[in-house]
Design a protein around this nucleic acid. Structure first.
Length: 427
RNA sequence: GGAGAGAUGGCUGAGUGGUCGAAAGCACCGGAUUCGAAAUCCGGCGUACGGUUUUACCGUACCAAGGGUUCGAAUCCCUUUCUCUCCGCCA
């Protein structure tokens, strides 16, 4: 959520910056709502003040045993107008809040301006794609030839967009998760957390999935939601909290499954495990002081990159343009891993700075200490990034580490997690 | 799943219709005292929103959440959520 004060002060500038991400802000509607809000709020609060004053006098009169009927009839005369005003005020506040909840974040000055993913800017490329002496197979063929990957059975059990892994491949999936968590906790200073996979609507609102993107989520019959990313439960840890400044920054990492309905993606990436209803992800989340958040974004992106580097997977870093960043983000880097069979780079991590956008929705604050005195609570900045999407990392390994004989070499860093296994072969 | 008890400021906790945004204690901050500290004393100390002559004052709202009764609700009524105790069940 944006700061309503900013909209009041600088509406045209806000509208311009939002236009750069393809969002049209209805400034006329905002101005009309605001004008109405101001008038009704002032009038209603005046009436409330009058009522409170008179009621106090009634109490005092009764306490002294005096007659209060004149006062009571005067305040009685206010009640209808007051009730009407309170209802209209509540109505307009709700309209305004609904309006605000549907406005995306402002892109940061360093976010490239552009319309869609074609305008994203490549920041750097790391690693050299391997030369194949033959046409490399995609991960589906590699996995199915080894009889370690089984989509038809997953479809029978559940539906399309689910995967079944067996044997050493299932173990590699687990090994990847352990390797990522160990790297972030032991080398990058994150605290590991285990979190609920179901969350309530308040949490979904806090991080920005609701109210706008309900159709992307799986909703349960009791009103809860399956998490689409660990970002939701982990970030909401600080919802409605005031963090002591000495605890900042807070760096958390969690491994969770993620559930996405993938509504609106019919026909896209239907082959293989690129786009699934259920996938595992290791997610990093940081809570930092506002002035530190852009340094933290670079650092966090580096932490995700470190995983790709240790796995020796070629990738590139893309700065998403204003038209392509997510609803809540001010700046996002995507990491794209090289997939030889598709002869292209595919997203494997997304690292974003949300500035105070999520914090304002969540009322997540910290109390600074200035000159030894505790200051007013201030909104924190929140960041998160995948470190990494486990399923897609597995896809990248199957494709990049495949051998002409159909086997797959196990990357060095994963071997300790797999009992020293060096190759995936038919079992 | 059954029975009962509860939810008040950073914490403990008083408050069952009227100067209650809320006693008191603790914690914290400032000052006095002191060579310094402890102790003691004095004062301050919630959040959000709005207004204005914009760092200061005024107003409104907030005692788990939502609704109701009333001139007036922390207090009475209804609904929901959560916590605790006991029983049952379960990994």
């Amino acid at each position: 959520m944006l700061d309503i004060q900013l909209l009041r002060k600088d509406l045209t500038n806000v509208a311009q910056r939002l236009a750069s991400r393809g969002f049209t802000l209805d400034t006329a509607a905002i101005e009309a709502l605001e004008a109405e809000r101001k008038e009704i709020q002032t009038r209603t609060q005046d009436l409330q003040a009058r009522r409170n004053q008179l009621s106090k006098q009634i109490g005092m009169a009764k306490g002294k045993g005096e007659d209060a009927t004149a006062l009571m009839s005067e305040v009685g005369g206010l009640s209808e107008e007051l009730k009407l005003g309170e209802e209209r005020l509540a109505g307009i506040q709700e309209d305004l809040a609904g309006f605000m909840m549907n406005i995306p974040n402002l892109p940061h000055a360093s976010t490239p301006v552009g319309k869609d993913e074609k305008d994203n800017v490549e920041v750097r490329r790391v690693g050299t794609p391997r030369e194949f002496a033959y046409e490399p197979l995609d991960h589906v063929d590699v996995g199915e030839n080894l009889e370690l990957l089984d989509f038809p059975t997953a479809t029978k059990i559940a539906s399309s967009r689910f995967a079944l892994m067996r044997g050493s491949l299932a173990r590699m999936h687990r090994a990847l998760t352990q390797f990522m968590l160990d790297t972030h906790t032991l080398e990058h200073g994150y605290e590991e957390v285990y979190v609920p996979y179901l969350v309530n609507a308040d949490s979904m609102r806090g991080t920005g999935q609701l109210p706008k993107f309900e159709e992307d989520l799986f909703k349960l019959s009791n009103g809860m939601y399956l998490i689409p990313t660990a970002e939701v439960p982990v970030t909401n840890i600080v919802r409605d909290e005031i963090i002591p400044v000495e605890n900042m920054p807070i760096k958390l990492v969690a491994h969770t499954p993620c559930f996405r309905s993938e509504a609106g993606s019919y026909g896209r990436d239907t082959r293989g495990m690129i786009r699934q209803h259920q996938f595992d992800k290791v997610e990093m989340v940081q809570f930092v002081r506002p002035e530190d958040s852009y340094d933290a974004l670079e650092e966090l992106t580096g932490h995700a990159e470190a995983i790709l580097q240790k796995l020796d997977l070629p990738y590139r870093v893309m700065a998403l343009c204003s038209g392509d960043i997510g609803f809540s983000s001010a700046k996002t880097y995507d990491l794209e891993v090289w997939l030889p069979a598709q002869n292209t780079y595919r997203e494997i991590s997304s690292c974003s700075n949300f500035e105070a956008f999520q914090a304002r929705r969540m009322q997540a604050r910290f109390r600074d200490v200035k000159d030894g005195k505790a200051g007013k609570p201030e909104l924190i900045h929140t960041l998160n990034g995948s470190g990494l999407a486990v399923g897609r990392t597995l896809v990248a390994i199957l494709e990049n580490y495949q051998n002409p004989d159909g086997s797959v070499t196990v990357p060095d860093v994963l071997r300790p997690y797999m009992g020293g296994l060096t190759q995936l072969v038919k079992e």
